[in-house]
Every structure is written in C-alpha cells, then in structure tokens.
Design a protein around this nucleic acid. Structure first.
Lengths: 189, 189
DNA sequence: ACATTTCTGGACCATCCGGTCAACAACCAT
DNA sequence: ATGGTTGTTGACCGGATGGTCCAGAAATGT
C-alpha cells in the first residue's frame, strides 16, 4: 500500500515520556521532543497529535504499565503480606529522585487539566482495588486482623507509599528513606 | 527622599504565590504576574528581580509561614499526642485539591532546579525536627511508647501526611480523605 | 517499472516569552 | 517651589513557542 513508519512508535513514546517525567509538561518544548525522538515536527504531529495529546498518551502508557506491574507484584508473591510489604518499600531505590511520573504530572497539572486529574483518580482507584484484594488475601492467610476493613487498610498503605515516593522526590538520601519505609511497614502491616 | 512604593510588597507576593501555586512555575507567564499584581514589568523586576527569583521568594515565604504555623500547632496543644493527630489530619479540608505549594513545586521542579530541591529538603528537615520534639513530648506524657525512636516516628508521620496531601491533590473526595487520615492516625499514633 | 499512498523534514506563521530600557510621574527634604 | 531621587509605565528586543503546511522522499502492490 504505502510507506511504513520508519520508527518504532512505542519506543519513541517511552523516550519522550522520560523527558516529560524529568522536565515536566510545561518545561518540555517541541524542540526537545524533536531532538530526543530524532523526528521532525510533521512526523510527531502525524503520529501522535499535538503536544497535549502526545503527553496524555505517554501518561496513559505509564499508568497501564504501572498497573500491570503492581498486579504482578501483588499476585506473584506467595504470601500476600510479603507482597504488601514489597509494594510499600518499592519507592526505595536509587532512582527515587525522579519520583513517579503520574504523581509529578498530577502535582503540576491537576488544577488546570481536568483530564490529568481524571487519569490520576482512575489510576489510584485501580491501585486501591488491587491492593484491597491483596489485603483481603493477607487477612485470609491470617497475617492481618480479619475484622478490619480491607479497603481502609489498602488506602492507608497507598497513601503511605505515595508519601514515600514524595520524600524520595525531595532528594532524601536512600538510607533515610529506607529507614522510614521500614518504619511505616512495621506500623501499618 | 523619594517616591515610595505604591503597592504592598508582601500582599502582591501573596497574590503571585497563589498563581504559582495553582498554575505551576512554567505555566505562569509574566503577563499573568502583571495582570494579577496590576503592576508593569519594570516594577516587578525592580521590586523582586527576575521570574525565578520572584518565584523563590514566594516559595520561601510559604515555607516560613508553614513552619511557623506548624510550630504553633505543635506547641499550643496541651497534649502532644493531640497535636500530632491534628498535624496528620491537617491535609483534610475543602481546599485539598490545591495540594501544598511546596510539594507541587518540588514535583514540578526538583529535577531541574537545585535551589528548589534544596529549599524542599531544608523545609522537611525543619518539619522533622519540630515533629520529633513533639513526639518526644508525647513520649514523656506517656501517650507514645518511650522506647521507640522519636525521629523515626516523626518521619513516618511526616511521610504519611505528605501522602494525604497528595491524595487530596488527586481530587479524592473529602469524606474518603478524612477516613484515610483517621485510619492512618489510628495506626501510627 | 510505475503509480499510489503515506511518511518526512523543514520552511513558515502568528504569537508569546522573559527581559531591558528610557522617558515620564510622583514623592520628599529642603 | 524646586531639585533630587526613586517608582512606574509601556514600548521594544531577540529569540523561542506551539502549530500548520507543502514539496519531495520512500516504500509498497500491481
């Protein structure tokens, strides 16, 4: 039929996402996107639409991957309590200063872009559901008190985890961060 | 000697801060700042320096006020445990979607502007010290186990509080937010 | 080989950006 | 009243912005 794309759409999307992640939405210019992808303006617009649409695609891709990763983390672990602990400790890693792409974007754009707010809320509701299921499993396995509300515990865990993500974003050193994470895990689980 | 300022420097600073708060740094233009303050470009530059310097002044003012407010909250309450509870619950209010100016700014700018990162880290260290002192008081008053590390508890509380601030920023409805906050308070205090 | 269709790159556009500057206005001390 | 000093304003600047568009390149099916 016709000439095919000369680049891998998903790979470019990942590279551009990294830029949005590190620089934020407003501070990322079309020139940045061109330089990083190696594509011309026309190609970018033809493939992804305008800057905001492109951004939303990278964000949605990130959320989808994150949800899938969380689901795997929570289901693969033999003991649910260990999975929850792993989830809570996940913000502790050498790349913590980058924070979370979704969280950064939410903080930057939530007031002005309703679609980002919607995306964020949906993502955290999904995560809450996944974590709630895992909490319920931990209760069945006898590792968490069965009389407590599973969703309430899940939401507390998620909030605590987001707090850790944020402390990482401030540049808190990994050792302190790890200590706080363990402390929270001990108190909440 | 000469002509005095025709505007209140601090009041203008507060108005401009609100704009940075809601729109973020990059998305706030000089035109916005002019429109909101009612001042010309020259006046803004003469009074506050360039955009970034002006932004840092609003941020530092916010941090200073926040620290002072926290200090008062923690010291005024007769029982330290009540003060800590109040602190943890403070992100629950109708204006929660705005989030925290410092947190929003950190998420947006931490990667690129070292001075914002520095400001954030300093602010959270100060808050940690204030909270640690209050935790120690709660231990002396017999409301928290005395053998635990006060700073560790303080950091956990601060992280949890920041997590709540963030959940508010996502637009989580106030009732759910309050429920999570109480749940965290019950588990951590 | 060719025609068709799509992709590609860059020229082009109007607008807006942050920042400078000089002319003018307002105020105070004398 | 006047002079000196500072504040204020808006015009102006070079460059960057996001976005459009078109001429030509490239790859496919025939």
């Amino acid at each position: 039929m016709a000439r095919p794309r000369s680049f891998d759409e998903d790979q470019v999307l990942h590279e551009l996402r990294d830029r949005f992640w590190d620089a934020g939405y407003s501070a990322t210019t079309l020139q940045d996107l061109m330089r990083i992808s190696g594509l011309g303006k026309g190609s970018l617009y033809a493939a992804y639409g305008d800057k905001h649409t492109l951004f939303l695609r990278t964000l949605r891709g990130y959320v989808a991957e994150g949800n899938e990763g969380l689901r795997r983390t929570l289901e693969d672990e033999p003991r649910a309590i260990d999975a929850l602990r792993k989830m809570l400790l996940s913000p502790v890693n050498p790349g913590a200063e980058r924070g979370c792409f979704l969280a950064n974007s939410t903080c930057e754009l939530a007031t002005q872009h309703a679609d980002v707010r919607t995306e964020a809320r949906a993502a955290y509701e999904t995560m809450t559901r996944l974590i709630t299921a895992c909490v319920a499993r931990a209760q069945r396995e006898g590792d968490l008190p069965a009389q407590e509300d599973a969703e309430e515990i899940a939401r507390s865990l998620l909030a605590a985890q987001q707090g850790l993500v944020f402390m990482g974003r401030t540049g808190m050193d990994v050792e302190t961060l790890r200590s706080v994470a363990h402390s929270l895990a001990d108190r909440l689980l």
